[in-house]
Every structure is written in C-alpha cells, then in structure tokens.
C-alpha cells in the first residue's frame, strides 16, 4: 500500500525525473535509427538460436510441457535482451554523459536533484527496454511461442529485469574511473548471458553449478519469463521477482547518493 502510494505520484508527468526522459527523447530524435536498430538485436538471436539451432535441438520438456527449443529459448533471449539493454543505458551511456559530456552538471543546476537523475535515467532505460521487449513478444506470438495467457505478465517481467539491472548498473558505474573499468561489466555479463539456464535447462548443469546459478541475477529473470510464457506458475516466482526488485531498489539508493557525491562535491 505505502509502496503504491510512493509509486503513484511518480507516474505523474509533472514529476522531475520525467524531465530526463524528455531529454533523452530529444537526444534520440536526431538518431532515431540507432533507437530502431535496437529492435533487431533480439530478433536476430531468435532467428539464429531459436529457429536455426532449434532445428538441431528438437523438443524439450519444460515444466511438464513438451515444447520446441525455440519456445524454450525465446523467453531466455527476452530476459537477456532486457538485461543487455538496461545495462547499456545505465553503464556505458550513463558514464559518457556523467564523465565526458558533463550533461548532468547542467541538469543539476536546475531544480533537478541527483536522485531525479538516477530515477530519470532508469525510467528511460525501462521505457526503451519495454518497447524492445514488446516487439519481441509480438514476434514470439507470431511464432506461436506464447503458450499461456500468463504471457501478459512477460512484459512487466522484462521491465522488472530491466529495473534490477538498471539499478545495479547505475550504482556500479558511479564507481568506475575510466573506460578500462568497463571490462568488469563484460566479465559479469558474459557468464550471466551464457549460464543462466538461458540456452539449456538448469538440469543439464553439474549439480554444484546448479546451486550457484539459482542465486545469480539473470537466472531470476529467465525463470520468470519462461514460467509466464509456458504458463507454469509457482509461488516461488515471487522470490525471483523480489530478488530483482531488491537489486533495483538498492542500486537506485546507492546510485542516487553516489551521483550526489560525484557531481556535487
């Protein structure tokens, strides 16, 4: 209840963080084609891995259903895309604006606060991610990969994945000193991308690794999306969702404070 009360006023267009979203819309208006090219990425993966490799893999048992590999891997690709997109905006793009373009120095001389910057950038990342995810889900629908009405939750699910990684990404970026530090982002992303039960079921991992994977962040998102799309729901999904919410909220906290320290010394 209190959470809703706190979120509702945020939705009002008058709130300050939206000004930053407005700024990013203005900035992308001139480079709309870059925005559009973001739609292609997950679709290309779906065609290559889902369709191409799918033909080699055949059908899989998932949550008691026998589904094509494409149906299995698509929600994983959706979760990956949500992570990638939100990390791109909140790490690399954010770093350039903060350290090189000094975009936020000007912003903070206006009534906007460091927290507004953090919330604004995350909101932007989520809106952009939501657009890409929606397109991806429509493609899945066309392929017949949405097996359940619960799939309606897949879009909010993707936004939630985006939120979790956006918070962490933003917070991590405030600790980066130079572009060299972005190597660490890669070192985190590639293992998550490959080993979050994204490309093959958790059961195929060695038992020790399975236990580790259950606690990694992208796995939470993959489980959510796959369950929604296949219609295989458990109460435990609430824990997966809570994990992502916590990542986002804690990240946002840290980021707001650190942006203040860095830009308003």
């Amino acid at each position: 209840m209190t959470a809703t009360l706190r979120i509702l006023p945020f939705l009002s267009w008058r709130r300050r963080p939206w000004r930053l979203v407005e700024r990013n819309v203005l900035a992308y208006r001139r480079i709309w084609y870059i925005f559009l090219s973001g739609f292609a990425e997950p679709l290309l993966f779906l065609l290559s891995i889902g369709v191409g490799v799918g033909k080699l893999v055949g059908d899989l048992h998932v949550g008691g259903h026998l589904v094509e590999y494409r149906t299995f891997v698509a929600p994983g690709l959706l979760a990956i895309a949500a992570m990638n997109g939100s990390l791109l905006d909140t790490t690399f793009n954010f770093f350039v604006k903060m350290k090189y373009s000094h975009t936020y120095d000007g912003v903070l001389a206006s009534p906007l606060t460091p927290r507004d910057v953090a919330v604004g950038e995350i909101t932007w990342a989520l809106l952009r991610g939501a657009a890409y995810s929606a397109a991806f889900l429509l493609t899945m629908l066309a392929f017949g990969d949405l097996r359940s009405w619960w799939s309606l939750l897949a879009l909010p699910g993707a936004v939630l994945i985006g939120f979790g990684f956006a918070g962490v990404g933003l917070a991590a970026t405030t600790f980066m000193r130079s572009f060299v530090d972005f190597d660490y982002v890669n070192m985190a992303m590639i293992p998550l991308f490959l080993f979050s039960a994204t490309f093959f079921p958790l059961a195929r991992y060695p038992a020790g690794l399975q236990a580790v994977i259950r606690f990694t962040p992208l796995y939470q998102g993959v489980v959510l999306e796959r369950s929604f799309v296949i219609g295989d729901l458990h109460w435990t999904l609430l824990a997966n969702a809570a994990y992502l919410v916590a990542m986002g909220v804690i990240g946002l906290r840290i980021a707001s404070r650190r942006i203040g320290l860095l830009l308003q010394p």
């Binding site: 008058r14 300050r16 000004r19 407005e22 700024r23 203005l26 900035a27 001139r30 373009s101 000094h102 975009t103 120095d105 000007g106 912003v107 001389a109 206006s110 009534p111 906007l112």
Partner: peptide
C-alpha cells in the same frame, strides 16, 4: 547559473538545449 566551464548538452542542438532546460524548470 553560468558556470565557469560550459556544460551545454552536447547531444542536442542549440534550440533543444534551451527547450529542455526550460523543461527542467517545468
């Protein structure tokens, strides 16, 4: 505020710089 170092928004045009700055002030 006119800061010592200009911090214009380099991703935007002259006009858009003014437009968005006004929006920051709602």
């Amino acid at each position: 505020v006119v800061p010592q170092e200009d911090n214009l928004d380099t991703e935007l045009t002259v006009w858009d710089n003014l437009m968005i700055y006004g929006r920051y002030f709602d």
